[in-house]
Nucleic acid binder design. Structure first.
Length: 359
DNA sequence: AAGTCGGGGTC
DNA sequence: GACCCAGACTT
């Protein structure tokens, strides 16, 4: 038996107090109002690496626009991405639409009530398969996310790095042994809810409010901030860009990003690598077949991704086109831009400057 | 197992 | 600044 493990009989002691706590403290959340499998699925995809408070308005708009799995499957991808605009990890939205089509084709339009079947769908990994299976269908399967790992490593003072697959696997099996057959979905949600609202990810946890503090080794030893142990992260790479807000007769230039990589296939304002001087910026416009009638500097901006930093300068340009080029600009009105094209938040600072200029 | 993929809240 | 969030997928 491993050093840090307590036996299953002990860990099973969390079940009753946890469910009882959840009965009193479960938050009222949009996806809990009418927990249809489609609703549970959409919420779990949106919640991947994303806070509850961030997801709420996105979930409401999504269900309003795409109320059923079939409407999602048949929706234009542009609409799906527009509904996802600003939420990040955009493959989640594309994969969800792919999965919706697969469910229509191979499961008769019903979200499959099987952990293994769910796991075959794009965008659904071990966590999400377990979450949907237990919450939407009442199947007794674990779902182990960052919240669960934090709660359990604290209860057990487990010092292993939670980034390791073996550790996640270990806790998944521990949960499988104790998950109550009567209320698996509530149990999984209770564990996550406790992690989100009491056994918090940042700052001091509210141990005095925790229904498990009586058996939490970290709390009893006053060592809660030592857990969970996580691997160190690599420093971010810095990239420098120049962004162009180009206006031609009340229209704005945007273009589609590459089909793979960062922000794949989304729309952006034209840009180039490096910080361009005013003269270099004019030359760049010329190379696009555009002549600057006016050009002025915009406020610089920075955007932090998980592994990259974008440092951006920008120019506002009013142009005429002196030569038809085969560049891939799309010239759109302000209304089309705001209504139909998904621009990632990395461009938000320039997007805001543009909207205030066009106001 | 390590890298990639977003964005924002919180300390 | 640094960390982390109801992770999945590719290499």
């Amino acid at each position: 038996m491993q050093k840090n493990s307590i036996d299953t009989k002990d860990l099973s002691l969390i079940v009753t107090p946890l469910l009882s706590w959840y009965d009193q403290h479960a938050r009222i959340l949009p996806w809990r109002e009418n927990p249809l499998p489609y609703h549970v699925w959409v919420s779990e995809i949106m919640l991947q690496q994303t806070r509850v408070e961030t997801v709420k308005p996105y979930f409401d708009r999504w269900i309003e626009s795409l109320p059923t799995l079939a409407t999602l499957a048949h929706a234009p991808e542009e609409q799906v991405l527009k509904l996802w605009e600003g939420l990040g990890y955009y493959n989640r939205a594309r994969n969800m639409q792919k999965a919706a089509k697969m469910i229509l084709d191979t499961y008769g339009g019903e979200v499959p009530a099987s952990y293994d079947a769910l796991l075959t769908l794009p965008g659904i990994g071990e966590y999400t398969a377990g979450a949907v299976a237990s919450i939407a269908f009442g199947l007794p399967v674990p779902c182990v996310d960052g919240n669960v790992l934090r709660v359990l490593t604290r209860i057990l003072t487990d010092q292993r790095e939670i980034d390791q697959t073996s550790v996640k696997k270990y806790f998944t099996e521990e949960i499988r042994l104790i998950i109550p057959r009567e209320r698996p979905g509530d149990f999984n949600q209770a564990l996550m809810e406790l992690g989100a609202t009491v056994c918090m990810p940042n700052g001091l946890p509210k141990c005095e409010l925790c229904p498990l503090h009586f058996m939490c080794k970290a709390c009893l030893q006053d060592r809660v901030m030592e857990f969970p142990v996580k691997a160190k992260k690599k420093p971010r790479k810095k990239e420098y860009k120049t962004i162009f807000l180009i206006l031609k007769e009340e229209k704005i230039a945007i273009r589609r990003r590459e089909e793979s990589g960062l922000l794949a296939n989304l729309w952006e304002f034209p840009g180039t690598a490096g910080f361009l001087t005013l003269k270099e910026a004019k030359d760049q416009l010329n190379s696009w077949g555009l002549l600057a009638e006016t050009i002025e500097e915009l406020n610089p901006a920075k955007h932090i991704f998980t592994h990259i930093e974008w440092h951006m300068t920008g120019y506002l340009c009013k142009v005429t086109e002196f030569e038809e080029q085969n560049h891939d600009f799309e010239w759109v009105s302000k209304k089309d831009l705001t209504d139909h094209f998904a621009i990632p938040s990395a461009y938000k600072a320039f997007y805001m400057q543009l909207l205030s200029i066009l106001k």
